[in-house]
Amino acid sequence: MTLIEQLQQLHQVIAAEAEQITSADDAEAFRLRHLVKKGTIQACVEQMRSVAKEDKPVVGKLLNQVRDLAEQALERARDQFSRSASVEPLDVTLPGRGVSAGAIHPITQTVDRLVEIFTSMGFDVAEGPDVEDDAHNFEHLNFAPDHPARDMQDTFFVDVPGRDDVLLRTHTSSVQVRVMQNMKPPIRCIMPGRVYRNEAVSARSLAEFHQIEGLYIDRGVSMADLKGTIMAFARRFYDAHAEFRFRTSYFPFTEPSCEIDMSCFLCKGNGCRICKHSGWLEICGAGMVHPNVLRACGIDPDEYSGFAFGFGVERVVLMLTGIDDIRLLYENDVRVIGQFTP
């Protein structure tokens, strides 16, 4: 058999074997038979020495065709089986993956519940800007010009060319001022929102947090109305059988002022970690709106009176959940937030 006949026969064998490669092992066996130094193609190359000079162009062309056929077949096989190996088999009989439900942040849940209770008691919801001026944040609320809260150590001031009275509100009481300036009594509103104070971040305090405040202005409003409102709210929100105590306090914008404690709804007044073993929880600060505040907002204090109250939402969340580090509420850890699915 001449070399030309051998190459023609080898061409047919390689083409047939290429169709039968079904795995990476088959491809490797194909390579070892045909494309190594002791393979079939190299054996034909070594026989080129005995080919007549005039036949070498024809034999060389045929030899190249055989080698190209084998190399292309091997390349296709390797490409096919390398892709198959990198793709995990898909089991189409497996059940579909469920959609995980998101969770509403506990602060948002708490604000929503507070708003729901107060609106059911006849309060409207009022909002105001986070960036305020000194007049709405301090002056109209009866803060003295030298009050410590006006100091940069307690307040974030905003750099505005030509002004030195722009700041981030330190309480939502600034919304109370805007409400009294733009509405005529009777006024009954709550003011939820973010507030900002220049404080060190720790387990118990943040530089940015949430407050909700309330305001009621009308003829004949008394301390009894304030007590009844707070007690009715707390018995719906915390504990239907709670007891209360009112302690005298001081706020520039209310007179008289008080801080309100409620018997601990967790230990029923027996003492626990949340109430610091006192049996009482402080729930808010409150008082009768100072006549100077009413006057500064265009309301006659001889005709109208009112009360105001306020508390921090984060502190409420800590009491309700038992979380002992306020920073956990802002770290976006799904292991924490996911526990509060409504």
Rank of each mutant, 00 (worst) to 15 (best):
S257V: 06
C258V: 10
E259L: 08
I260K: 08
D261V: 07
D261N: 07
M262C: 04
C264T: 09
C264N: 08
L266C: 14
L266W: 15
C267F: 11
K268I: 04
K268W: 05
C272L: 11
C272T: 11
C275I: 10
C275H: 12
S278L: 10
S278T: 15
W280C: 13
L281A: 13
L281I: 15
L281M: 15
E282W: 11
E282Q: 13
I283Q: 08
I283E: 08
I283P: 09
G285P: 14
A286I: 03
A286D: 10
A286V: 06
G287Y: 02
V289Y: 04
V289K: 08
V289D: 03
H290A: 03
N292F: 00
V293S: 00
V293C: 05
V293A: 01
R295P: 02
R295Q: 14
A296V: 01
C297R: 00
C297D: 00
I299H: 02
I299W: 01
D300R: 02
D300K: 01
P301M: 02
P301W: 00
D302V: 00
E303R: 14
E303M: 14
Y304N: 05
Y304Q: 06
S305Y: 01
G306A: 03
G306L: 03
G306C: 03
F307V: 03
A308M: 06
